[in-house]
Simulated scan of single mutants.
Amino acid sequence: MIATQPVTARSGAKATRLAWLDALRGIGAMAVVAEHALPWLMPSLRPYWFSLGMYGVLVFFLVSGYIIPASLEKRGEVGAFWVSRVFRLYPLYLLVIALVLAMAFWVPVRQEVPRHPSAVAAHVSMLLDVVHTGALADPMWTLSYEMVFYLLVTALFVGGVHRRSGTLAIAFGVVAVAAGHRAIGVQIGVRFGDRSRRVQGAFQTRVRRVFGARVRGAPGHTGHPADERCRPMRGVRHTARHGSTQADGPHGPTRAHMVEADRAGA
C-alpha cells in the first residue's frame, strides 16, 4: 500500500499536467475559431486591437515547446520520435491536400501556389513558409515553424545539448525577449512615424490654405486667372516707370516687355 502511493501520485501529477496542456490547446483553438468566425457572424465583437488568431497560434507554439522536447527525451531515440511525428501530422495533412485538389474542379487553387515541382517538394517537407511558397490551404503556414522546431530540437538532442537545457532555455528566452522588444519598438516607431508624417502634412496643408487665402484676399488680387497672367506685365510697367534696369529673365527683357515699357513711358 505504501509502495503504490508514490506511483499514484506521479500518475496523478502526470494526468494533471496533460489536462493543463489540453486546456491550453482548447483556449488556443477557440481563439483561432473566433478570429475567423467573428468577422462573418458578429463583427462588432471582434477586438481589432488584439489578434485572437495570432494569440491562439502562439499558445499552440508554447504547448509544442513544452511537450516536444519532453517527448523526445522520454523516447530517447530520434527515429521513434520522428515516426510518431509523421503519423501524427501527415495523415490529416495529406487528407486536406487531397480535398483541396479534388475541389479544384469547382474552386481554383490559390494563386499563391506555384505551378512548379518545387511546390510539391515544399508541401512534402512542410517547409512552405520557410522557402516562401504559397500553401494549398493558408493555415498550413504554421506547420513550417513546427517542422523547424522539430529539426532544431532533434539537432540539440543529437548534439547532447539537451543535458544543459536549463541554461540553453534561459539563453533562448533572453534572445527572444530582446528580439521581441526590438520588433515592437520598430513597429511602434513606424506607426508613430507614419502618424507624425500625417499630422505634419495636414498642418502644412492647413497653413498653405490659410496663408493662400490671405494672399488671394489682398488688395489688387481678384482671384481671376487673368489676374495671375497680368502680374509679369505689372512688373514691367513698374520697372519702366522707376527706371530699373533689372532683367526680367535669364536673357534680359523680352520684346513684348520692351514694347510694353515703351508704351508706359509714352
Rank of each mutant, 00 (worst) to 15 (best):
A171E: 00
A171Y: 03
A171H: 03
A171C: 00
F172L: 05
F172Q: 07
G173R: 04
V174D: 11
V174R: 06
V174Y: 10
V175G: 07
V175N: 08
V177Q: 09
V177R: 00
V177N: 01
V177C: 14
A178Q: 12
A178G: 11
A178L: 12
A179D: 02
A179K: 02
A179C: 08
A179G: 13
A179N: 00
G180F: 07
G180I: 00
H181M: 14
H181K: 01
H181G: 02
R182T: 04
R182W: 03
R182M: 03
A183D: 00
I184V: 09
I184P: 01
I184N: 05
G185C: 01
V186W: 10
V186M: 00
Q187S: 14
I188T: 04
G189S: 06
G189I: 02
G189W: 04
V190H: 15
V190M: 13
V190I: 14
F192Y: 15
F192E: 00
F192S: 03
G193P: 13
G193A: 07
D194K: 13
D194W: 11
D194C: 05
R195V: 02
R195T: 04
R195I: 11
R195N: 08
R195M: 13
S196T: 12
R197Q: 06
R198W: 05
R198A: 02
V199Q: 02
V199R: 08
V199L: 15
V199G: 01
Q200T: 05
G201L: 11
G201F: 08
A202K: 12
A202I: 13
A202H: 06
A202M: 11
F203Y: 07
F203A: 02
F203C: 05
F203H: 02
Q204I: 11
T205L: 15
V207T: 01
V207F: 07
V207P: 02
V207H: 00
R208G: 12
R208E: 00
R208K: 04
V210P: 01
V210K: 09
F211H: 08
G212N: 07
G212T: 01
G212V: 13
G212C: 12
A213V: 12
A213C: 07
R214H: 03
R214L: 13
R214N: 04
V215C: 07
V215Y: 09
V215Q: 04
R216C: 03
R216W: 13
R216S: 07
G217M: 11
G217H: 13
G217P: 12
G217L: 09
A218I: 14
A218D: 06
P219E: 09
P219G: 01
P219R: 14
G220Q: 14
H221G: 07
T222L: 07
T222V: 14
T222P: 03
T222Y: 10
T222K: 09
H224E: 01
H224C: 06
P225V: 09
P225T: 08
P225W: 15
P225E: 10
P225D: 15
A226V: 13
D227S: 12
D227Q: 14
D227T: 14
D227C: 15
E228D: 08
E228N: 10
R229C: 02
R229Q: 12
R229W: 07
